[in-house]
């Protein structure tokens, strides 16, 4: 906690007990919190002050909620010293709270109050809240369906991709046969298989699982393979002189050494499988968030689309966070892994 103030520079033997630095640091640490609180009060007021131009039922509750957030921001940051880690975390995020409050105020005013943005296409915040409260069961069903489909396809694709990658990287014979197939089929976007998959597979669900697995499998295979292939021979030499058998070389040398590459593949596979999931749901599967988006568009229910998009983004981001958390746990031995 080194604080610099003018009095430090002018110190002439006098004890540095002046009050100015204390006040300055208090303003610096709590000022942003107060600003955040002001921004959220502004948001709350913007909800309640003017009349809505449309018919939305959650405007009042949203205004109250904004005031509650404002109160939390104020007391949380000013009294952060008494709140332990939670207070510290809140203080760190205070600048974001300011930005968010300001953005929501602007959004509220520009849509619900003065309709500066054309209305059905740009719904106000309260109409999105309305979706979450009134259309929750359908939204939850969609989330559940999407997660189920994604998880199944991803796990199958990742497992098959990993095993294929290790086999190609390890065995020349497997590489000879699988490599050309991989080069031929792998770069094809999984969505290109969509029309074929939907009439060759018994159900749209199994077809989508196949496509998601395909989208996941390719990057996982290629990166696992290159990971295994790039393991330094010195590691194998060391293990062999210590009495290692081939199974040990694969399981305890090649795979752990390749793991950083494998996780890059898993990460890329996750990204491309999200794309396939949404497309598959929009076209074939009659469930899931992709289908929900499509359905909302059909009814011109733009608030529902935004609401579903927000949920989708939280889910995808959560999945990536989870994957990277697993990676960080498994690869603690690495220095300086990429932060998410």
């Amino acid at each position: 906690m080194s604080t610099y103030s003018l009095s430090d520079g002018l110190a002439s033997g006098a004890p540095r007990l002046s009050r100015t630095p204390v006040l300055a640091s208090w303003v610096r640490e709590s000022g942003v919190g107060i600003l955040a609180s002001v921004a959220w009060i502004a948001f709350g007021l913007s909800c309640l002050w003017w009349e809505d131009v449309g018919d939305w039922s959650r405007t009042h509750s949203l205004g109250i909620a904004a005031f509650i957030v404002a109160a939390i921001a104020l007391f949380g940051t000013v009294g952060a010293d008494y709140l332990g880690t939670a207070g510290k975390a809140l203080r760190q995020r205070a600048p974001w709270l300011v930005a968010l409050g300001a953005f929501l105020t602007l959004w509220e005013v520009a849509t619900a109050k003065f309709a500066w943005l054309p209305l059905p296409f740009f719904p106000p915040p309260q109409s999105i809240i309305e979706v979450y409260t009134d259309d929750l069961p359908k939204l939850l069903d969609s989330v559940f369906a999407s997660v189920k489909l994604q998880l199944g396809g991803y796990l199958i694709g990742a497992t098959v991709g990993f095993l294929t990658g290790v086999s190609i990287g390890w065995s020349r014979a497997v590489g000879y046969w699988v490599h050309p197939v991989l080069r031929f089929i792998g770069p094809l976007p999984a969505t290109a298989w969509l029309p074929i998959a939907f009439f060759t597979f018994p159900s749209s669900w199994s077809a989508s699982t196949f496509l998601i697995a395909l989208a996941t499998g390719f990057p996982v295979t290629v990166l696992t393979w290159s990971g295994v292939a790039s393991v330094s021979n010195a590691y194998y030499d060391v293990a062999r002189t210590l009495g290692a058998k081939p199974s040990f070389l694969v399981l305890k040398v090649a795979i752990p050494a390749a793991l950083p590459h494998v996780f890059v593949g898993l990460f890329m596979g996750l990204g491309s499988s999200f794309a396939v999931l949404v497309v598959a749901e929009m076209i074939g599967v009659k469930a899931g968030l992709g289908w929900y988006l499509q359905w909302a568009q059909g009814w011109a229910a733009y608030a529902n689309m935004y609401a579903a998009l927000i949920v989708m983004s939280l889910l995808c981001s959560g999945a990536i966070t989870l994957l990277l958390a697993i990676r960080d746990r498994l690869l603690v031995w690495q220095k300086g892994t990429v932060k998410w």
Partner: peptide
């Protein structure tokens, strides 16, 4: 054969294993 063990110019420790697990490598293998 583990009766003839090599120490190379580079330590070539396995970076994913702790010191103890590195030393345990031969017995484990």
């Amino acid at each position: 054969h583990p009766s003839r063990v090599v120490v190379f110019q580079d330590p070539t420790l396995f970076p994913w294993r702790s010191v103890w697990d590195n030393v345990a490598l031969g017995l484990e293998a």
